[in-house]
Design a binder for these strands. Structure first.
Length: 141
DNA sequence: GCCAACGTTGGC
DNA sequence: GCCAACGTTGGC
């Protein structure tokens, strides 16, 4: 069981859009970055992730689960690009903002802080637990 | 709206 | 294979 973070501009694909897809989930398509793609290739069905809104909001707003392993990205014919499917599990009780994360010294090594431009990133188990606590959700989803 | 950081492209 | 130029992302 691994943990991840998925970043999206809410104007392009928001948490509400994700929730509307229900348990069927949706492709996390459109990723055109090798690092992000490689992380998706490592994902397994049942892995958990945070759903993060970038730009204006800058906060973790929900919990998602990987519901399909990496497969070709349907939005391109370019065979290099793959993506997983994810489904919404639950909204967080309290959104955890980037500011909150930066203020927590135990989260200083998070990829979100270190490499803000990476749209799909790994989260350690420790980071997962700290953030779930901050968000008011159970860490054993 | 600006700009820093980063990734990608293409010329050499 | 290097590196300059360019484009994109996302925080501020």
């Amino acid at each position: 069981m691994a943990y991840w973070l998925f970043k999206s501009e809410p104007s392009a694909w928001s948490w509400d859009d994700q929730v509307a897809k229900g348990d069927a989930g949706e492709e996390w398509d459109g990723v055109r970055n090798y690092q992000a793609r490689n992380f998706m290739r490592e994902m397994a069905v049942g892995d958990s992730g945070f759903f993060y809104h970038s730009q204006k909001e800058r906060a973790i707003v929900g919990i998602v689960e990987v519901c399909a392993e990496a497969h070709p990205d349907s939005t391109t014919d370019d065979a290099r690009w793959e993506c997983v499917d994810i489904k919404a599990v639950a909204p967080v009780k309290t959104p955890v903002t980037l500011e909150d994360i930066k203020a927590e010294e135990r989260l200083a090594e998070m990829v979100l802080v270190r490499n803000s431009r990476l749209s799909v990133q790994p989260v350690t188990q420790t980071e997962w637990q700290i953030i779930c606590h901050m968000a008011g959700v159970s860490s054993d989803i």
